[in-house]
Simulated scan of single mutants.
Amino acid sequence: MRVDAQRNRDHLLAVAGPVVAERGIDVSMRDIARRAGVGLATLLRHFPTREALLEGLLHASFGDLTTRASELETAHTAEDALAFWVRDCVAWTTEYRGVTVLMAAAIEDPESALHASCVTLRAAGARLLARAQAAGTARDDLDGDDLFALMAMLAWAGDQPALAPRADHLFDLVTSAVLTRADGDRGTGARRAI
């Protein structure tokens, strides 16, 4: 990509990020172009669909969360690593109101611009879940798809103004349902730390 084209793309993303965070994923592409000081055609040349724009905005975050999974895997117990990572993912998804709905759809749609990133994120979670299952600290009847769905549900709840005050409590309930302790103690570890 030419330097000026990359600069234009970066400018569009820099403007779009705060607009999407403020107004949600349904914000008009025309409004984003207007705020960026470009025509709609210019925005669409760089990002032909809303999903392409969101993928551009979210790409680095997906990578960061995948890297974070690896870091947690080496620095914490299997139980703590899984709980910390799920907490990080849920917190991140609330940054862009409504993105959870798109991610849930994209994971099943190979044609979606977000599909590859969502699949990578799901795989990172599945790896942490499998590690916790092997350690005997997570239910063995869950898989990566279930974990991704649970994270989407928690993120959706946190995105709803009426439910947001209950988000931490709901997270603790779901975490308690997913994580088990070999010694039967449900009040220790990552759930208390997060």
Score class of each variant (00 low, 15 high):
residue 7 R to W: 02
residue 10 D to A: 13
residue 13 L to G: 14
residue 14 A to Y: 09
residue 14 A to Q: 08
residue 16 A to E: 04
residue 22 E to G: 13
residue 23 R to A: 13
residue 24 G to S: 05
residue 26 D to R: 15
residue 31 D to W: 11
residue 32 I to T: 04
residue 33 A to Y: 06
residue 39 G to W: 01
residue 49 T to N: 10
residue 49 T to Y: 08
residue 49 T to C: 07
residue 50 R to V: 00
residue 58 L to Y: 14
residue 59 H to P: 06
residue 60 A to R: 14
residue 61 S to R: 15
residue 61 S to K: 13
residue 65 L to I: 01
residue 67 T to L: 13
residue 67 T to V: 12
residue 68 R to A: 07
residue 69 A to G: 03
residue 73 E to G: 15
residue 76 H to P: 11
residue 78 A to I: 13
residue 84 F to Q: 11
residue 84 F to N: 12
residue 89 C to R: 12
residue 90 V to H: 02
residue 101 V to P: 07
residue 102 L to V: 06
residue 107 I to R: 13
residue 111 E to H: 15
residue 112 S to T: 04
residue 112 S to H: 11
residue 115 H to W: 08
residue 130 A to C: 07
residue 130 A to I: 02
residue 132 A to H: 04
residue 133 Q to S: 07
residue 135 A to F: 00
residue 137 T to I: 00
residue 137 T to Q: 08
residue 137 T to P: 07
residue 147 L to H: 12
residue 147 L to E: 00
residue 149 A to P: 10
residue 151 M to R: 10
residue 152 A to V: 00
residue 152 A to M: 13
residue 156 W to M: 13
residue 158 G to A: 09
residue 162 A to S: 15
residue 169 H to Y: 14
residue 175 T to K: 04
residue 177 A to V: 00
residue 182 A to W: 11
residue 187 G to Q: 15
residue 187 G to W: 15
residue 189 G to V: 00
residue 190 A to N: 04
residue 194 I to H: 01
